[in-house]
Structures are given as structure tokens and as C-alpha cells.
């Protein structure tokens, strides 16, 4: 894994050096501190946290009847790795197309969400004007209505998009964006959460930086594009990862909006393993494991950015 941080002698340790003379005892003490203060508790917690994940993987490697056998066994031999091959040709799921669809859905939605939220959050955080807080609170209020009740109104609106899917200018006569990637992606590209998130970050950029840029003759757009955006690149990455993951895991909206294979996503495919007649647990969990991998990879690759990314209120 590429995430292992290099050993680092941080300042506290140097502080300790000053008090304790011999290098060997310092090393030993530091080692003891790290082992008892970090590695031991972290390993125990990691085992507890990871056990359900391990369990999911072990279920994916069992047959359906082994899953229910009593007493429960951690692993059953032979391990059914073939599930991970079979799933690619399983008629219920169509995992190949669905992975592609989900990738398009999550990527486009994430980029648009980050861009548009950054624009709105920048103005809401950096400019002073009347009604600014009012607008912000209204934006925040929009996340307080459960998405489930909005399905029907949203669906009717997507169907009535003018001049799309055979619709006339009044939005009648055709199917609008129903069952299209546009209908899947576009209604969800902005949420109060993401504007809230980025606004919290933009608030923390020191005013002096902005003023200095103005004195240097920067345009307002350049302040956004050349200063605010690069300075908050970590926060944008963090938001990107979070929105990517939310889009990737989204279930109800894709469920109602997509009917054909061209717009169906992975979560819908997973749901196919559960039907009126019962659930195909092994395949469902195999699919779940596969659909989780890209998200874990993304986190592993970008966690540095997240960790230094969200920087609330400090440095103001």
C-alpha cells in the first residue's frame, strides 16, 4: 500500500531528547510509547472494525448453504473464488456495463458538484452582502427534507424537461430525461451539504492573502481560480471523494430513474440478487466486495489530501 507514512521525528520527540541524554533509552522509550499508545489499541480497534468486512468477504467465498451452517465458521474450504469470476457473466447483474455506468455517474456528478459548490461557497464565504447568511441558511435547510418524499416530484420534473427525449418546448409529449444519463446525473449535482462543507473551508483562507493579490492587480476571478482553488485543493479533493462515494452508493434515485441497461448502476445490480423468493447472499456479497474496491483504492490514493484537506476555522 502506498499510504504508509515515513517515520518522522516530530517536535515532541525532540523536546524529549533534550531531557533524556542517552540515545538508546530514548529509542526504547519511544518504541514503548508507540507500541502501547498507538499500535496496541489501534490494532485491537482495527480488528473489531474490520471483522464485519472480513466476514462479508468470507461470506462471498462460501456457498449459500455454508453461509447459514451452524456453528458459523470463519472460512469454508474450498474458498469459492470462482464467485468473483462468475459474477461477471451473471445475467441478473450485468456488472460490466453497470460498473461503467456507475463510474460515469459518479465521476461527472462529482466534478460538477465540486465546481458548482466551490463557486457558490466562495461567494458565500468571501463576499459581504446583505442576505448572505440568509441564503446560506436556506441552502443548509434544503438537506433537511428526506429524499424519499421528493422522488415523485423530481421524477415528474425530469420527465417534463423541455426539448429532451421527444418533449416539446412545454415539456410535454415525450419522456424528457427519463432513463438517460442526464436524468440520472444532473438533478443531483448540487446539495446543501457540499456548499456547507466548502464554505466552512473558504472561511479559513486568511484575508491578507486575498488583499495582497488584489494589490498585485489580480482580477476577482483570478483570486478564485489562482488563489482560492489551489489553496483549497485538498478540501476540494476531500469533497470529491465524499461525493464520489455518495454517488457510487446512491440507490433510490437510480432505482426510479433507470429502466434500461444503459443507465443502470451497480447498486441496482446488487439489489437484483435479492428478490421476492429470497436472497442470493454469496453473489450479493461478491458483488458488494467488487463494487467497494474502487472506493477503497480512491481513499488509499487520496487520503493524504483528505487528511490535510479539511481545515476549518484555523488560521483566520
Amino acid at each position: 500500500m502506498s499510504t504508509i507514512d515515513p517515520p518522522d521525528f516530530d517536535r515532541r520527540d525532540r523536546f524529549a531528547d533534550a531531557r533524556v541524554p542517552t540515545v538508546r533509552s530514548v529509542k526504547l522509550r519511544r518504541w514503548m510509547n508507540n507500541a502501547l499508545g498507538f499500535y496496541l489499541p489501534a490494532t485491537i480497534i482495527a480488528l473489531v472494525m474490520a471483522f464485519p468486512l472480513f466476514w462479508m468477504l468470507s461470506l462471498a467465498l462460501k456457498t449459500n448453504s455454508q453461509i447459514f451452517s451452524y456453528p458459523p465458521r470463519l472460512l469454508e474450504t474450498p474458498l469459492r473464488w470462482e464467485h468473483f469470476v462468475e459474477i461477471w457473466s451473471d445475467p441478473r447483474m450485468n456488472i460490466g456495463i453497470q460498473t461503467w455506468n456507475t463510474l460515469v455517474y459518479a465521476t461527472v456528478r462529482t466534478f460538477m458538484q465540486v465546481l458548482l459548490s466551490a463557486m457558490a461557497a466562495f461567494v458565500l464565504a468571501r463576499y459581504h452582502f446583505r442576505g448572505r447568511n440568509m441564503i446560506f441558511y436556506l441552502v443548509l435547510a434544503t438537506v433537511m427534507i428526506p429524499h424519499e418524499v421528493m422522488l415523485v416530484p423530481l421524477y415528474l420534473m425530469v420527465k417534463a424537461v423541455p426539448l429532451a427525449g421527444g418533449n416539446d418546448i412545454w415539456g410535454t409529449g415525450g419522456s424528457g430525461w427519463l432513463d438517460t444519463k442526464a436524468g440520472l446525473i444532473l438533478p443531483g449535482i448540487l446539495s446543501g451539504y457540499s456548499i456547507f462543507f466548502l464554505r466552512q473551508f473558504f472561511l479559513t483562507i486568511p484575508r491578507e492573502v486575498e488583499e495582497a493579490a488584489r494589490i498585485d492587480g489580480c482580477s476577482e476571478f483570478a483570486i478564485f481560480w489562482r488563489i482560492a482553488i489551489p489553496m483549497s485543493l485538498p478540501a476540494l479533493t476531500a469533497l470529491g471523494i465524499f461525493s464520489f462515494q455518495f454517488a457510487w452508493s446512491d440507490y433510490t434515485w437510480p432505482l426510479v430513474i433507470s429502466t434500461s441497461e444503459e443507465s443502470r448502476t451497480l447498486q441496482l445490480g446488487l439489489a437484483m440478487f435479492s428478490s421476492h423468493d429470497g436472497t442470493d447472499w454469496a453473489m450479493l456479497l461478491t458483488g458488494a466486495a467488487i463494487s467497494t474496491l474502487p472506493l477503497i483504492a480512491l481513499f488509499v490514493l487520496l487520503q493524504r489530501f483528505i487528511v490535510t484537506g479539511i481545515n476549518f476555522g484555523v488560521g483566520k
Binding site: 441478473r92 422522488l151 426510479v256 441496482l268 439489489a271 435479492s274 421476492h276
Partner: peptide, 17 residues
């Protein structure tokens, strides 16, 4: 192939429109 689960969200919303 539509995922029904035990409900008909997909059909209900389709009927609405």
C-alpha cells in the same frame, strides 16, 4: 429487468408520469 425488492417504487413513479 427491474429491481422490485418487495415494493414497486419504479412502477409507482412510472405510473405517475
Amino acid at each position: 429487468k427491474t429491481s422490485f425488492g418487495t415494493n414497486f417504487e419504479a412502477i409507482t413513479t412510472a405510473l405517475a408520469s
